[in-house]
Design a protein around this nucleic acid. Structure first.
Lengths: 221, 221
DNA sequence: GAGTGGTCTAGACCACCAC
DNA sequence: TGGTGGTCTAGACCACTCC
């Protein structure tokens, strides 16, 4: 009924979560584990790939498989990233077109500035952001927009990373990510910023707080 | 440099997104595709598994691989699911303990009611919700809480589904999901509802709108 | 060079679906 | 019954890490 892969993954998962295998500890080599579970190496590797996608182990080429240490969790708060060490990799001048023009509600060929940012913690990247701002509002320093937003809309989805995103964030292509498209508008309704954020699912979460006034009720389902 | 799997996946992805392969269309059988790309069937299946995780194809056991039709996207709006056909599978009386007691900020063994809900659209499940409400506030009909929330806090993460979640939602274990933990409080600060929501990443998104008053600024990074 | 994980092969065997 | 996908095997060969 349940596959060998799932059985093995479940067993190792239990050993990790119960502390039988401790954080930082190296697992036996794959041939050894395969022999122990009496399966072929591809089957065993399949199970390990699952644990990697869950963020329970790190696979290090040429070194071994290690139980992952608990990660400090990055919290994105609706409308703003938590203060952290950021690295602006690239600033690009471009012109709006297609999807970008639609998001920013500007005509095609409107001058924009793109900020490509990578967030870091513990020497490893933990967030990727592409921020687009109409050029007349763009600033040289963070926050890169000269104007304060009156309303911020965050559209959050879960998906697997593209190979480029996986390479940039140094994560496995099987690790789920939070993809957030953020649109900020000023009091007049003008879009002053559009941003694509990518946060690894194993070390990031997004937090949104909604206040309901008495006039309008809340939970419908 | 790039693996055969990625090359094949990229090729098929292109054929799908460009319309060369149309929605609903059946792909050639796996042995045929393997022969076409001159790879073994496991390698080809590996590529197809990737496309499945991206939501581009459906793998139907005994029938074939099909280009997926565009899915109607479920939008969860901060604090409330969009009105849709819901099915309450189970109502359970239980007592708070551990994590649940912490979330609800109640003492252990406080009586609670759990509502297990599955959302449907087009005959297929598209959302899974576990809602916990202090028993004195629980109602028999949706919305199951007798009281209106003053504040709703949504904690959003991306991860892979557990095997139970995958089975319930009829999705592949490799498809990323949005996991939302929602805490609703009344004006006095009492927690009136805690909910765990699971939304498939290929057909759901969460939308949050934040309004900033003039006193407090917004984007910090 | 020894040991590790990364990729791929060729094929067996089972389960599901349609006829 | 025949074709399809699902799982697993046994092993080859390459790339990376460390000594």
């Amino acid at each position: 009924m349940t596959s060998l892969r799932d059985t093995i993954a479940a067993d190792l998962r239990t050993q990790i979560t119960t502390g039988h295998l401790k954080p930082g500890e190296r697992l036996p080599s794959e041939p050894q584990l395969a022999a122990h579970y009496k399966v072929s190496t591809p089957t065993l590797r399949n199970a390990l790939a699952f644990l990697q996608a869950e963020g329970l182990i790190d696979k290090l080429h040429g070194k071994g498989n290690y139980v992952r240490r608990p990660l400090s969790r990055l919290t994105y708060e609706g409308g703003a990233l938590t203060p952290t060490l950021h690295l602006t990799v690239r600033t690009t001048q471009l012109r709006a077109q297609g999807m970008l023009a639609t998001l920013l509600k500007v005509p095609s060929r409107t001058p924009l500035t793109e900020f490509l940012c990578i967030g870091h913690a513990d020497e490893s990247p933990h967030s990727l952001a592409r921020i687009y701002i109409p050029r007349d509002l763009a600033a040289a320093e963070p926050p890169w927009c000269r104007q304060r937003p009156a309303e911020v809309q965050d559209r959050v989805t879960a998906r697997l990373p593209t190979s480029e995103e996986a390479a940039t964030l140094r994560i496995t292509p099987a690790l789920a990510i939070l993809a957030i498209t953020r649109i900020s508008t000023d009091p007049t309704g003008r879009v002053i910023e559009a941003a694509h954020l990518v946060l690894p699912g194993d070390r990031a979460e997004a937090l949104f707080t909604t206040h309901h006034t008495t006039e309008k009720g809340g939970a419908e389902g």
